[in-house]
Amino acid sequence: MRVIGVGDNVVDKYMYKRIMYPGGNALNFSVYAKQLGVEAAYLGVFGDDKAANHIIHTLNDLEIDISHCRQHSGENGFAAVDLVDGDRVFIGGNDGGVQNSHPIILTQEDLNYIQTFELAHSSIYSGMEGELHKLKETGIRVSFDFSTDYNESVLNEVCPHVDISLLSCGQLQTNEIKDLLTLVCSLGSSMAIGTMGSRGAMVFNGTNFFEQKPHYVKPVDTLGAGDSFFTAFILEYLKGKKIKVNEDQLIKQSLEAGAKFAAQTCLVDGAFGFGIEF
C-alpha cells in the first residue's frame, strides 16, 4: 500500500519551552502512515528558514518521499502553542507562511505521480479546495480533514470531491454530530468521521453509525491525536477492503486501530517528536 499527504506542513512552536516540532495535518498523515509500516509520501510547500530545513531533514530521516515538494524563499508555516491552565492551546501562527503566497497548483506531472498511490489526504489548512477535483479525477481515494473550520458553504464545495471526510466535533452534541455526518455523506462523501475528543469518535458510512470510545492514557501531549487516529483507521480500513472483510466488522476494527494508535501518540511530545530549540 502507498499513501500520500498533499497540503499543509508547519512547525508547532511551543512558546513556553522554546521547542518546535514538525507537524501539519497532511504531513502528520504521511509520517503516521510510515510509522504504521506503509509506504508514504508528502507533497507540500516549504520555506527556506530553519523550520523548513528541520522538517525536510526529518522527512528525509524517516524516508518519506518528498520529491514533488516545492520550496520557496520565505518563512515556513508555523503554529504557536502555549500552556494555559495546564492545557496546550494554539495561540497564533503565520497562516501557512510561504504556502499562502505559493499555493499548491497540481500539474499533470503531479497528478501522474499521485495516481500511483491508493489514497491522497489533504486538509482545510492546505488551501487546496480548488484543486481537490483534480485529485478526485485521478481515480484514487481522497480524504480530507475539515478540523473545526467548516460551515455549510465549505462542505458544499468540498464534499463532492472527497471520499472520506474527517471533522472535529468535540463541541457538538451526539444528535448534532449525527446530523452533520449525514449531511456530509448526502453531499458526496461515502464516509464521514467525527472525532469527539475525550468522547471518542463516530463514523457514518451512509447507512449505519458506529461509535468508538478512546483508549485512556495519561497524556504527555494530545497534539496529533486526531491525525493519528484517522491515519490508523483509514489504513486498517483500506487493508480490510482488499481482502473483502465484512463492512460493519471492518469499520469496528478500524475504529479500534485508530483509538489504539491515537493513545500511543498522546505519549509523545509534539505530533511525533523531533523537537529542536528555536
Rank of each mutant, 00 (worst) to 15 (best):
S189N: 13
L59Y: 05
F272Q: 02
K241E: 14
F210V: 01
E176G: 09
S143A: 02
F233G: 00
Y16E: 14
L180E: 03
L135M: 04
S123L: 09
E137N: 09
H121I: 06
M1P: 00
K218Y: 11
S67M: 10
R88T: 06
S168Y: 06
H68W: 09
D8E: 14
G97T: 02
V3T: 13
P103D: 07
E109I: 13
I105A: 08
G93T: 04
N76H: 14
I64T: 08
G93N: 05
N112S: 12
V11Y: 07
E131H: 05
V142G: 00
L111N: 07
I104C: 03
I234V: 15
G275D: 10
V81W: 08
A120W: 01
M196N: 09
G224I: 07
F261R: 03
Y42P: 03
E256D: 10
G139F: 06
S198E: 15
I4M: 13
G92L: 01
V154F: 05
G74C: 08
Y216R: 12
S153I: 05
L255W: 05
R70L: 15
E152F: 00
H57K: 15
L62R: 09
A40T: 07
A26G: 04
C185R: 05
Y14M: 05
A41T: 08
I234C: 01
D61N: 12
I177Y: 01
K218V: 14
S190W: 01
T116Q: 14
A40S: 15
